[in-house]
Write a protein that binds this DNA or RNA. Sequence first.
DNA 1: AATCGTTCCTGATAGC
DNA 2: TGCTATCAGGAACGAT
Length: 313
Amino acid sequence: MPELPEVETTVRDLQKKVLNRTFLDVWTDFPKMIKQPESFEQFKKEIKGKKIEKIWRRGKNIIFDLSGSYSLLIHQKLTGHLLIGNWELEIACPVGSRRLSFGGKWKPLKKGPLEEPVNRYIHLMFWLDKGLMLALSDLRKFAKIELLNKETLKKELSSFGPEPLGKNFTFEKFQACFKDKKGKIKQVLMDQNVIAGIGNIYSDEALWRAKIHPLKDALVLKEKELKEIYKAIQEVLKKAIELGGESISDYRNPEGKKGFFDKERRVYQREGEKCSRCATKIKRLKIAGRSAYFCPSCQKGEEDKFSSSPSLP
DNA sequence: AATCGTTCCTGATAGC
DNA sequence: TGCTATCAGGAACGAT
């Protein structure tokens, strides 16, 4: 699942490899992923000949500013990957085929993890100049692409909360994010309009680091607790970027390589394992339809209210 | 106006 | 063995 650190890793890689490249052509077998403009033909017409002038990130969104008045907005959602290849692949990816070899070899279509050279999940392919290709693979087909003029883009991004690693993102600004924000802290942290870029993994990891129970009401958090969360978010996101993101699920960078955040992952998808701080078994619960992993001992909180026996007179 | 449930999609896994 | 049912997951959208 790409969240801020994975998207950042992807963006940095893209900046190195496809900045200043020009789109020559595009292919898809799933036009539905392109939300704007409405027809793929229109999309193709607009993007052909446009140069990638800037590559940046806002929350979990990747943005290519193009020559002319458009920007390309890409959201990878759960299983999207932007992958870079080269023109050898043009032969390997004839229009209409679901097969593509990133190792330069043909293989029959079959099931398999992403490490295999065959990636049958590529649903969008760009041909760039200088012999490069940029593919979007997406197992779940939830990824979203939009070609927007700069003003519409600005509007779309305007509701997002601040960047947690932004230069002037002070504690006071963080604190302000929570003003009048009802709901459990876990939910609030994942709300892109409160703070941008945090999803299921890093909300769990940050709350574990801050020793805050995910079910705790955001409104009742004391300044001291908020400070802990603020610190934890920045630390865990920075660490994850340093390590190239997490790959517990299927995230890969544009070269198809895994990230190494796994060695820092303390609670997410570790139900039943021992907490690395106190050896208590990690628990999982559902919050607003999402899994939340936490240590019931380190992260004391709401459920104690209900589980403790009432005191007798 | 906020908040809840549903939807998109497919692979993995559980249950029979 | 092979089938079907259930679930995960971000965010847009519809419903209340």
